[in-house]
């Protein structure tokens, strides 16, 4: 178990910068989610930590040991691949034992640790099966067991749940978190699914165009995204632009309270209220209700304000007084407005 650090890490492919001067610390024993759209460099960063990508500049440290010149096989990592990469010519138990056999671990020790690892991922009785006889979720568990049985210093997960269907994915998220807690291993995982990142991670890092643009605890980053990209990428956000004067943001036909100095603000859909009558207080915009969407416990209102689409989300009953469509007022408490840096 170790802290992992990257310092000024860059990877250039010709003129393209897959990674551009990324400095980041992955805390010891933490579950760190690397999040970003495709082409953001998150997978390159993970593969650079693993050693499959040789950085153009910068350093990678596992514990305090610089590993840029250490080949993959000597880095003491555990990795779970997107397609699991189980060896099809070996049984489940042999797959899990592979890393121990390579290290020349004694036979009795191997049997015990393989048994324990399969127990941990709840696949105890399936050791004799072949990978092709397993379901997607079971393969995922085997890949986890194989990656942690060697007691690596860091566990790297490359989109570990993307090959599973939605229902299984939620189960495996809980399972993954449980295993990680039990083993207590520093874990770095890559995903493009923001919900997954928010659910699993202790900390998240958001990458865009090879640069790290935000890092922090998921709640922190969600409630105060800081810039337009993060606000839109992590959850949904109503981004409103205006011109500032003093404490106010001037919008077409309205004036709303603004966080200090901001000309662009974000309000999460769950913080927007929709009413037929004009509410008290200053933060109110007159808009047209386009559509009410019923989705079980929650409802969504799609609104049109000066040609811009806004979204409001609340428990379904809260929208029950509203007409199907027509003029409404949209408002929010000033404390829920966050100032954003423009892109």
């Amino acid at each position: 178990m170790s802290e992992v650090r990257v310092e000024g890490l860059s990877k250039h492919y010709g003129a393209a910068r897959a990674l551009d001067d990324v400095t980041l610390t992955f805390p010891d024993g933490g579950f760190f989610g690397l999040l970003g759209p495709s082409g953001s460099g998150k997978t390159t960063l993970l593969r650079a930590i693993a050693g499959f990508v040789e950085p153009t500049a910068g350093g990678v440290f596992i514990g305090d040991r610089p590993v840029v010149d250490v080949p993959v096989e000597a880095r003491e990592i555990g990795m779970v691949f997107q397609n699991y990469a189980l060896f099809p010519n070996m049984s489940v138990a042999d797959n899990v034992a592979f890393g121990l056999r390579v290290r020349g671990t004694a036979r009795g020790e191997i049997d015990k640790r393989v048994g324990d690892a399969l127990e941990l991922v709840q696949l105890g009785p399936l050791g004799a099966r072949r990978p092709h006889e397993l379901s997607g979720g079971q393969r995922q568990r085997v890949a986890m067991a194989r990656a942690i049985v060697t007691r690596p210093r860091v566990l790297l997960l490359d989109e570990p749940l993307s090959a599973l269907d939605k229902a299984l994915r939620v189960d495996m998220q809980i399972e993954l978190k449980r295993i990680q807690r039990e083993v207590g291993i520093t874990t770095i995982f890559v995903t493009h699914d923001q919900e997954e990142a928010l659910t699993l991670s202790d900390r998240i890092g958001i990458l865009k165009g090879g640069r790290l643009i935000r890092e922090g605890r998921p709640q922190e980053v969600y409630s105060d995204p800081g810039d337009v990209f993060t606000a839109r990428f992590l959850g949904e956000a109503n981004v409103i632009e205006g011109t500032g004067s003093g404490d106010w943001l001037d919008l077409p036909g309205a004036r709303v309270a603004r966080p200090e100095g901001a000309t662009t603000i974000a309000v999460r859909p769950e913080h927007l209220s929709v009413t037929v009558d004009r509410p008290d207080g200053p933060n109110a915009l007159q808009a047209r209700l386009r559509q009410r969407i019923f989705a079980g416990a929650m409802g969504t209102c799609v609104l049109d304000w000066n040609g811009q689409m806004l979204k409001a989300v609340a428990r379904h009953e809260e929208f029950s007084d509203l007409p199907e469509s027509g003029p409404v007022w949209v408002s929010w408490a000033p404390r829920h407005a966050r100032g954003l840096k423009a892109d």
Partner: peptide, 18 residues
């Protein structure tokens, strides 16, 4: 043979002859 199989083996500490 999927390249990720070879990468997985390397991540588990296997040398090329293994």
């Amino acid at each position: 043979i999927d390249d990720s199989l070879i990468e997985a083996a390397r991540s588990l500490g296997a040398k090329w002859w293994t």
